[in-house]
Write a protein that binds this DNA or RNA. Structure first.
Lengths: 351, 351
DNA sequence: AGGATTAATGTAAAGGATTACAATTCGCCT
DNA sequence: AGGCGAATTGTAATCCTTTACATTAATCCT
């Protein structure tokens, strides 16, 4: 199938601002002013020019404009993994903020690989983006340096070790865990397990610490046997939950370091004919889009993704304006109560 | 927090190709040739220039280049909904093909709204993209016309009504359904239900037709009561499944028009204490990333998303080269067997 | 009405690369 | 050494806008 984009007769002159100017009998400067909404042009002239523009289907050449203005109105967005459903909403939100300002976004993902991060940043720079949001879970300074030497504003996502050095959107895990423990305690739980992630992962250790702190704050004892490690994926959650369930004394509620592992935990419970939430309560973390679609719908903790995106975007804009980015309180995680939590079943207390 | 991007002392001349040329003691033409990998430059010169480029941290101005060359090496990608997990893999694949060719992708989503489609196309054109892939489930000609008048190559996803008019990546639902029925028949099923989507949705009616055709081909009777309509979401699937399960005579296997409804069906079965797959088999469509994470992992049909992306991308490239796009056989859906299907339970045959 | 302001428009110089064409230089041969 | 063709390199025009500055038109005020 061949779609002739150029009709055969088209001996057509390139359609540029000069054509419009001629046809409208004004100068290119005036056309340009109309295009850019300058106020210094009579309404009558402006209307006329706009009519001609529409007539000719004139579309300004963005490259010429950008070249002249020295900005591309293009932002780069780098995420860990577009297939991780945490990110699409973040991307979406970032993108719509950009669209509102007539800014376009190109984005790439690193697949959790720092080598790829380096390339991603490089590509963004080669594209002459105006600013870059690096919303990945891990980051290395070498990659970031490139942007710095190219004088391109950056913003990171919750990279505590770079705090003060690079602009950063800071996220608070504690609040969600405090709310979760509060919720469980009110329901009557005292025996609470945790499916942690590997210690090699930054965010995983932070979550575990937040869990432990929240336990203490609620006057609950930490039981080492009730903290098991999973691989942050469904399978790991299932295995971890099996370990937990196989113990002589079991917790009545289990938190997981992310929703995928909570899903696995749910499955392990099903497989063992343990009802959720009647026999055991489960809480996840992330509030992935699927969380509400599980059986039962999963109580979980949520990082407000749209807010993260909004703040990252605003941060970059502020930097571009040359203004000081005001310090902002961390973005807080919140508990989202659904149906995987309920009062514990009556039975002998395990302590 | 204020990160000074420009150090205070930086009274720096804009770093352009001329600076590089001076420093390397060659002309800008030579630098440009090195930059673009022209063969007509002595290896020694080339190496020297590259060294200087690296030394000066010179990054070419993409706008100037694009302006001169008349191409942006930017493609537009429009999808229905980035939060629908069908799309991220498609986006990913499209993007990596592009990256290989030094092409960047900007993308937007319509949220299934044709008004937004119009804007999306418009934005792409305003950005002077070289080509646009419109990978949405619905499409209207008015939106597409914009691209045509702007002489920008397009490619659509499975829009049969525009076939022959616009380049199109065609997808075949039939194969998947034939394989699914084959699979069920081999397992011993004869009584097969279907959770359809609304008739207002193109893809939903196609899937239903494919199901009906496959039924016929396998010599199975269609039972109108066993075809129920859902809203293509989890909740609709659950309700539809409840309807199906409430009938005096039930199918032993149920196909759903998409995975979300299959998830709902799974939940309805759990809630009614009907085991899957022992008591009833369930098959979805789409092979969303969650399909394998369900309990039990869902047997489903898969549209090869990476292949769709690859073909769409290749199609656009071919058009840009001014070549004829060869007709290609439709992309086939395939059955992915997991654990939600098994032989039917022994019981009185219902026919 | 006429001069002083102010508003609207026009002219032409960037902006930073690519590339046709012209000018050199190189390598090789006699 | 001198000459020729091929391989390199250089010069300068070009891509299309924006915008500083100059110019002209409109408006106001006495």
């Amino acid at each position: 199938m061949r779609l002739s984009i150029l009709g055969p007769e088209q001996r057509q002159v390139t359609m540029d601002i000069l054509q419009v100017a001629k046809r409208a009998k004004v100068s290119t400067a005036t056309v340009s002013r109309v295009l850019n909404g300058s106020t210094n042009v009579r309404e009558k002239t402006s209307a006329h020019v706009r009519r001609v523009i529409a007539e000719l289907n004139y579309i300004p050449n963005r490259n010429a404009r950008n070249l002249r203005v020295g900005r591309t109105r293009l932002f780069g967005l780098i995420v860990s993994d577009i297939n991780n459903s945490f990110f699409p909403e973040l991307i979406d939100a970032f993108e719509s903020h950009a669209a509102e300002q007539g800014i376009e976004v190109i984005f790439t993902h690193t697949n959790y690989d720092l080598t790829r991060l380096h390339n991603c940043v490089r590509r963004m720079i080669d594209r002459n983006v105006d600013a870059i949001a690096v919303m990945t879970s891990e980051v290395d300074e070498k990659s970031l340096k490139q942007a710095i030497t190219a004088r391109i504003p950056l913003v990171l996502l919750n990279q505590r070790e770079f705090e003060g050095k690079y602009p950063n959107v800071v996220v608070e895990y504690a609040t969600g865990f405090e709310e979760a423990l509060e919720h469980l305690q009110v329901l009557g739980h005292h025996d609470i397990g945790f499916i942690a992630g590997p210690n090699s992962l930054n965010s995983a250790v932070r979550r575990k610490e937040a869990f432990q702190a929240a336990l203490r704050h609620h006057g609950l004892r930490e039981r080492p046997k009730w903290i098991v490690v999973g691989d942050m994926r469904v399978e790991g959650g299932r295995i971890a939950m099996e370990t937990l369930l196989s113990q002589k004394s079991r917790p009545t509620a289990v938190l997981a370091s992310n929703d995928l592992m909570a899903m696995g935990a749910l499955q392990a419970a099903h497989a063992a004919s343990i009802r959720v939430p009647e026999d055991i309560s489960i809480i996840g973390f992330d509030d992935l889009p699927v969380a509400g679609m599980m059986y039962p719908p999963l109580t979980t903790m949520r990082l407000p993704r749209r807010e993260i995106a909004a703040r990252a975007f605003a941060n970059l804009q502020t930097q571009l304006l040359g203004e000081t980015v005001p310090a902002r309180p961390p973005i807080q995680s919140r508990l989202v109560v659904r149906e995987s939590t309920a009062p514990p079943a009556m039975r002998t207390r395990s302590i």
